[in-house]
Design a protein around this nucleic acid. Structure first.
Length: 573
RNA sequence: CGGGGUGUGGCGCAGUCGGCUAGCGCGCAGCGUUUGGGACGCUGAGGUCGGAGGUUCAAGUCCUCUCACCCCGACCA
């Protein structure tokens, strides 16, 4: 490809709104352009990268036994109503009306469509297992797109759906995908970390995410160096410092004039925060819920939401709390009636807590669970934090910020039951098909690769996904010798099928080198009067600092070797 | 949805107390001189100042409404 003909220009300056590394570099290199919030055009260079990532993903899916197909973007809303997931997605669903006033959803994912399809095509256990996948554009009206390609509203996604006769079959399919994912990330030079995850709106039981550590990521996960434990904060559990466990003392009121927050109250009374109980109020699908949790622990809203089986959960406003007759600042589960109380496990294991008294400027000392109050539900709704103790091995937990580059789910049978996807087993009994689904955001993957492979000069594409492998860079293009040598090289490399970006522009060396670095093409080949004087060309890998002079007649061989060597390397990173 | 911010050529920005023809840098086009890490000179093209309404002799500048985008939060496979 001649650079002079390539559509898309590198930018000297970039829009101020770009704040993540990948967003900046993809804009500066002229590879993407934003059309609206979370909606991007991929220019030719980016599209080549996308194509290469897709090819790797496709290859791994096929190797695992997947069959590719394509499904509609436009999906009747009734299909979503059947599974109830129109509510789970809520406003995240892009919808529109056709001329007959029928409502359609722009597919945010395709479990409904594929399950409907499979229900039609599968009747017998002999038809199972089945792995079907698609690589398509999906739509989600995210409340806040961000980070360039990290979180968008229109995105290319690979989704594979597995269909098995039973849980054991599902476990096998799940393992196959786990394996395929590991391979594919390795091929893309991404050090992906497998973590336990919450399954969110999609439902189901087991779920894992693949994360890549990056400050541009929007997920936090907790992990342990001692063992393999790693989980999204939404899901993570931890062992907290113990509260005291002594003989319960008689409860007594104490005056706490003007002290409301846990910090203030524990300070004033000289009691550690873990010996206090705090009250937090949520509105779960319009119902006010009282949360009792130890003062030093935060509520994990994901756990709470799952526990309450609600679709909408938010913190209650002060007026809503007051309307329920509760004294904000001194709220207490003690003596409370007619309000659902959810207690974190932490409140049941300690003794003699300080809690509110439901009376202004007053708290209660020596409050004990069971004796002084009871909860409707007791469960783990605590947020795990770095520094706490690992639930598996007793080590110290750490936390990291990351980009979610893959999410896999054991769905089970709830979708097949709702959509009538049943099969007849060997003994002639009708059973629901057991499902799994396995997603990867292709564009986000590209952004993640940039996040993890760059320097202050620009992108450093791994050979496996680079838009071109060789950046052919003649200097002093008014020099006929240079042009001739470069054109010969170009022809020979093209003949070998190597993808070459030929910088045929009459620009100064500085501009050419800087563009080469910015675009991140793995191998730069410089031809100039200086190199030709020695009958050579200069080779430089984007990953390396130093350059190497190679005789003209050996150049093609050497380039070929460098390209295939690094490509092979990258598969095992 | 709550909080904060920004909208002026393709990109980055300036524009005072309302004042006359809306500027600068980059990029773009032409010519010439240059050239191993973003050269220089000259010439030139390119603008509904986000939009609507208002105040005024006069609005990029003031007022009202509105739209878009960004950041934090909520939210989010």
């Amino acid at each position: 490809m001649l650079l002079s003909k390539l559509f898309g220009k590198t930018q000297r300056e970039i829009p101020a709104e770009a704040d993540t590394v990948s967003h900046r570099l993809l804009l500066k290199s002229g590879m993407i352009r934003q059309l609206a919030a979370g909606i991007y055009t991929y220019l030719p260079l980016a599209w080549r990268v996308i194509g290469k990532i897709e090819a790797i993903v496709r290859d791994e899916m096929n190797k695992a036994g997947g069959q590719e197909l394509s499904m509609p973007v436009l999906q009747p809303i009734e299909l979503w109503q059947k599974t109830g997931r129109d509510l789970a997605f809520g406003k995240g669903l892009f919808t529109l009306y056709d001329r007959k006033e029928r409502q359609l959803a722009m597919g945010p994912t395709h479990e409904e469509v594929i399950t409907e399809l499979v229900s039609y095509n599968v009747q017998s256990y002999r038809d199972l297992p089945l792995l079907l996948y698609q690589i398509q554009t999906k739509f989600r009206d995210e409340p806040r797109p961000r980070g360039g390609l990290i979180r968008v509203r229109e995105f290319i996604m690979k989704d594979l759906y597995s269909f098995d006769a039973d849980d054991e079959g599902l476990a096998q399919s799940y393992d196959k995908m786990l394996n395929a994912y590991r391979n594919l990330y390795a091929r893309c030079c991404l050090p992906a970390i497998l973590i336990e995850a919450d399954s969110g709106a999609i439902g189901g039981k087991d779920s894992h995410e693949f994360m890549v550590i990056s400050e541009s990521g929007e997920d936090e996960f907790i992990y342990c160096d001692g063992c393999k434990y790693a989980a999204n904060v939404e899901k993570a559990t931890s062992v907290k410092d113990k509260a005291e466990s002594k003989q319960p003392l008689p409860a007594e009121e104490v005056a706490t004039p003007g002290y409301q927050s846990i910090g203030e109250v524990s300070n004033f009374l000289g009691v550690p925060a873990r010996q206090t109980l705090k009250a937090v109020f949520y509105i779960a699908d319009k119902e006010l819920v009282f949360i009792a949790i130890r003062g030093d622990i935060e509520v994990n809203e994901t756990k709470l939401k799952n526990l309450l089986h609600c679709t909408e959960l938010r913190m209650a406003g002060e007026d809503e709390i007051r309307a329920a007759g509760i004294v904000a600042g001194s709220a207490s589960p003690v003596g409370l009636k007619d309000i659902k109380i959810v207690a974190d496990e932490s409140v049941t294991s300690g003794t003699n807590f300080v809690a509110g008294a439901n009376k202004a400027d007053t708290h209660l000392k020596n409050v004990n669970y069971n004796r002084d109050f009871k909860a409707n539900i007791v469960a783990d709704i605590a947020l795990a934090r770095a520094g706490e103790v690992c639930p598996r091995c007793g080590g110290r937990l750490l936390s990291a910020q990351g980009i979610e580059i893959g999410h896999i789910f054991k769905l089970g049978t709830f979708l097949s039951e709702k959509l009538g996807a049943y099969y007849i087993d060997a003994s002639g009994i009708s059973r629901p098909i057991v499902m799994g689904c396995y997603g990867i955001g292709i564009g986000r993957l590209m952004a993640a690769i940039v996040e993890l492979n760059h320097d202050d000069k620009g992108i450093i594409w791994p050979m496996s996904v680079a838009p071109y492998l060789v950046y052919l860079c003649p200097l002093y293009t008014e020099n006929d010798e240079v042009v001739k040598a470069a054109e010969n090289l170009y022809a020979e490399l093209e003949k070998l099928g190597l993808e070459v970006l030929f910088d045929d522009r009459t620009e100064s060396p500085g501009i050419k080198f800087n563009d080469a670095d910015l675009l991140g093409i793995p191998l730069r080949v410089t031809v100039s009067p200086r190199t030709l004087e020695k009958g050579s060309v200069e080779l430089k890998l984007r990953t390396e600092k130093n350059t190497e002079l190679v005789p003209l007649d050996a150049a093609v061989e050497k380039i070929k070797k460098l390209v295939s060597d690094t490509q092979a390397d990258s598969q095992f990173t």
